[in-house]
Nucleic acid binder design. Structure first.
Lengths: 228, 228
DNA sequence: AAACGATGTCACGAGGTTGTAACATTTGCT
DNA sequence: AGCAAATGTTACAACCTCGTGACATCGTTT
């Protein structure tokens, strides 16, 4: 895991509790008492996920979420909202604003962790550090290591992310555009053909292990990771 | 999936939100703030589906839908309308004008995606990435693979699209013109006989699996995929 | 300052893909 | 049987796609 998680919660006790739990789970909590402060933090460094209390003094949680969604840079950050009760009204409005999940207080640390993990997996399975093992290839996000048939494989950062994405979305074709969006980020402007070059570098790095065939070209469409 | 979806919505925040969600779901959003702009976009390239806000400044959503339905070229584009409230009046008028579905604000991304998928499945199954399995032939759009009686089948891009369309519209005859429109796309001018050649190539590719008989000629009319 | 690794872009060539025309064959009809 | 229209089949040139190596840039390390 090791995700940076922004906690926006005005109640100090609850904020403390959540932050402690996140730390226990291996995440790095960022804290904010209100939306303004949260916006400041986000301006400095992007969190991987936001835990957002819906009832905030000043700028509301809904408005904060809206702003995150409005900015290209922060648009893709997953949001889990914390609601006081199972308030259907909040829930609806929250989901409309683009929250990925909600959790009603009181909640157990276990439940919170489960939802965080689920959201990270759903939004971006490649953000999780579950080990991926497919067709003789093993990729471990936690240790940032890759091995093919036992032999270690050296990859550059981009090739690592690319392989990670492909392996967590195997048996599917991905267009260059999709790969750029998912691996490079959707706010980056790069030539589509750049993908080819990195695919090439990835294959080259896999060659010594004879596993370069797993990364396949689908002519006219894109690339695919497949064990067939 | 990977459908091109035109979003006609004057509220920037909502437009942004929808576009973002569509992208996440693997679609490619086109945006228009008003009906005029939307008409321009449509003139250039046909979207696979239109998300249409009913309340628009200037030319209304209803009028826009009417125009789409009036033109032969755009008549078959599925439309999902976005209504402010569950306004029976709008709903009736919308469905009458030819909308395929409606969704009332506020709506969750999940609900929107579900409706899009449902409409596509009904109106343009070839845009979906559901696997198609018919008469011993299996075609999987997601992995971009085809197999006949278990054996893999190699197809060029055009043959793949052609087979996909035929299989998702089986037991129906399609004229060469229809196939050109649906498989080659609009705004393309190609000889009708070209279809014959690709049918031939498709059959040839299917020959090794003995499944080439599924692609049938209907003399004087066109071609048909049939398991009989 | 020099060296290095990572990255994005370009240019070139091999090979796959496509549309068309030309010719062959089949089909329906008289 | 004989004919004309429709379809099957093949060959091919134009075109497109992708793999590949080279190179410039940038930020960091030595």
């Amino acid at each position: 895991m090791a995700a940076t998680i922004l906690v926006v919660e005005d109640e100090p006790a609850i904020q403390e509790l959540i932050a402690y739990n996140l730390k226990q789970a291996g995440h790095q909590p960022l804290r904010a008492d209100n939306a303004e402060q949260a916006l400041h933090l986000v301006a400095n460094a992007l969190p991987d996920l936001v835990l957002l209390d819906w009832m905030l003094p000043g700028l509301s949680g809904i408005e904060f979420a809206r702003r995150l969604r409005a900015d290209k840079r922060t648009r893709s950050i997953p949001i889990i909202m914390l609601t006081a009760r199972s308030d259907e009204q909040d829930k609806l409005q929250g989901l409309e604003t683009g929250a990925d999940d909600y959790i009603t207080k009181p909640f157990s640390p276990r439940e919170l962790n489960a939802r965080i993990k689920a959201v990270l997996r759903r939004r971006a399975p490649e953000m999780t550090d579950d080990m991926v093992q497919l067709g003789g290839l093993k990729l471990d996000p936690a240790s940032h290591r890759v091995s093919g048939n036992g032999e270690p494989v050296e990859l550059g950062p981009t090739e690592f992310r690319l392989l990670h994405f492909l392996m967590t979305h195997a048996e599917r074709v991905h267009s260059r555009t999709q790969l750029l969006d998912q691996v490079w980020g959707d706010h980056v402007f790069v030539e589509e053909r750049t993908v080819d070059v990195h695919i090439r570098r990835l294959r080259k790095a896999l060659e010594p292990t004879e596993l370069d065939g797993l990364v396949q070209t689908v002519r006219g469409t894109g690339y695919r990771f497949s064990t067939n």
